[in-house]
Design a protein around this nucleic acid. Sequence first.
DNA 1: TGCACTCATATTTTT
DNA 2: TATGAGTGCA
Length: 815
Amino acid sequence: MLFQPEEQMANTPLTLTVIRLTSLIMSSAYDSDEFPDRMPLSQQALAARPAPYLDELNEAQRQAVEALEGPVLMLAGAGTGKTKALTTRIAHLLATGKARPNEILAVTFTNKAAREMKNRVANLLGQTVEGMPWLGTFHAICVKLLRRHAELVGLKSNFTILDTDDQTRLLKQLVVAANIDEKRWPARQLTHIIDGWKNRAWTPDKVPTAEAGAFNHRGVDLYAEYQERLKTLNAVDFGDLLLHVVTIFQTHEDVLAQYQRWFRYILVDEYQDTNVAQYLWLRLLAQGHKNICCVGDDDQSIYGWRGAEVGNILRFEKDFPGAVVVRLEQNYRSTPHILAAASGVIAANQGRLGKTLFTDLDDGEKVRLIGHWDGDEEARWIGEEIEAMQSGTRGLRPFGLDDVAILVRASHQMRAFEDRFLTIGLPYRVIGGPRFYERMEIRDAMAYFRLSVSLDDDLAFERIVNTPKRGLGDKAQQKIQASARENGVSLVEGARLLLSAKGLTGKGAAELGRLVEGLDRWHGLVRAGENHIELAEQVLEESGYTEHWQNDKTPEAPGRLENLKELVKALESFENLQGFLEHVSLIMDNESEDGEEKVSIMTLHAAKGLEFPAVFLPGWEDGLFPSQRSMDENGVKGLEEERRLAYVGITRAEELATISFAGNRRVYGQWQSQLPSRFIDELPDEHVDVLTPPGLYGGGFGAAAPSMGDTIQSDLVDRAAKADGYNSPGWKRLQARSQHRPMTQPSEARNMVIDLDAVSAFTIGDRVFHQKFGYGAITGIEGDKLDIAFDKAGDKKVVAKFITPAASAGDDVPF
DNA sequence: TGCACTCATATTTTT
DNA sequence: TATGAGTGCA
């Protein structure tokens, strides 16, 4: 029986709860078929407590916290105290005795969010609530559920969790086996396709026929094969964690019913980021008590590209009839100018649920906007600006380096800043980047650990047979594979059989023999319960893996050895290797703090949920941000997601937001003329302060920047200065021709870069000259932008200002 | 096995 | 440009 009568649990004393829970966390509950974590909390003790936490909430927050019964959608704008409301709600549920800690299901997307929530609930209640076993990420909770019911989907409860890399390697084998040209149809692509299907909760039999063409018409077959293969390997990928649980719920009413009964209250963080599978999962579970509270912000939905469905949050009221919608609109983070600028941008999106953020804070600084000649100059300016800000500049208060963040659209943009900051010696930290456990050496080491725990882990074996080099190349590995297949055993066993059959000779045989021997020994030690930290060191030592990196002369080698030490250190917080492996694929952050003040550099995506007093938003150029690819692939939907990204970016700033763009940028080594982002047009003028390009930095357009090397079209610049505003025939013609959005009031920002008369000077067919691209002919005119077919550089869209008529620039000499 | 070479490729990323 | 994967050769 899965559940025990509730009365029995209610009387269990708290102390016992804690002890039982701790032991639970330490040991993985593979073999238990009952709820080991029914952790009653002494209800009287909590109920007797006053609820001082409620006094700290504003009206909306309080409403969201107190509406305990029935479906609730908490629409929480940026910086409106969403986590506070969410955690207080949990505390309130516990304090009022509505639910025991183990009857609350609280899901987040990241471990960080889960951790924070746990801590804050504990703080609110003034005691450690150990027993919230169902507070965690979607994936962590699904692992727990799946371990209990693995057999219902043909798995054993000790299944391994593959990461993306394993997944792709496995798929690659299948692709090769299917005689598909791996070059034209890379396995990585198939990984993405299958992930996408899993995100939409499509098992192989449910993939719609419309998708049949995927991956050269073989996608669906390969998907089915892949799932079979996973089953034989007793493995799942990240997508499976959810999908299998959904399948179990859908096919086993009794199981579902039990959980529906069990989870009295469900809370979901970042609901706008849920994908279809997660949505189904939640909806199935919520059908029991119907007490589901989802928190999210449709304006911050930035993960559509990995399956998140904004529709989930937009549809909430339909999905959960009778839902109470609470809007948290009071912002405690940003100044009014920043808030207004962000609101102005996001207002351009269609189909929003709509929120009006307001704040009590003082006006503060307007959002600053500055243009630069090129990306290097932008980096230089920001570097100098940050240095100046440390001592206070332009009448601003002094900022510490920890107060400052640079948020970029794509990680390659970080480079310019890193280079610059290195040369001027400005300490910085990059947030994001490859995760600790994704690094080669960590994965190799993990493979050794996995094998030591279970000799059947074929994927792990494949990874390390020849790492470090043992002279076991393709040939030898194929023999091992064949031997394993013929005998229907694991690769390790296959290798053993191969050796005893003398199927392998010479150095390879000796090395393989040593490896198998080592694995046996380590496995024996694991079983004997040997201290796992010493064991881990021993494995790395005896396998020759540590030595391998010690002998490596590449500059990365010391760092890798360092990482291996880190890994062993991380083992300390676990009781045994199994427990470690169990969690490591799901939980392992890489945030080391050395205490030094540093500027943070990260992507906009990585910045979600964070806040900084001062934020720099560089690279606001059409094509880069909004990203061309996003718009090409997803049209308006893509553009709107980019706009939400802009909104997320601006709202990260508490006091000071500085947006910048460059007129020229090197893209894949090629100089490209850039247009300021359309989002810049959407910034409301009255909240923006256009920094006069300081001559010192040579910023801005029209000013002959030193880096140009050549005078730009000074005659055009002169004429632009004399332009008689927006009533000129040229402007009117532009308006009529403008295909995108009609430009209403050209903003001050725009004004800075538009050169109307420059445009009106051109007509289609004109031969023109561009400083970087050379000669070409105009093929189209759109706003202040010209489509030009360059003789050498091909078709480009360029701001008119950078163009001169071919005649005035010299002879139209063909190259 | 290690190297030098060509060639294609080029967001955002958690679990 | 610059990075990684794949290939050919010693």
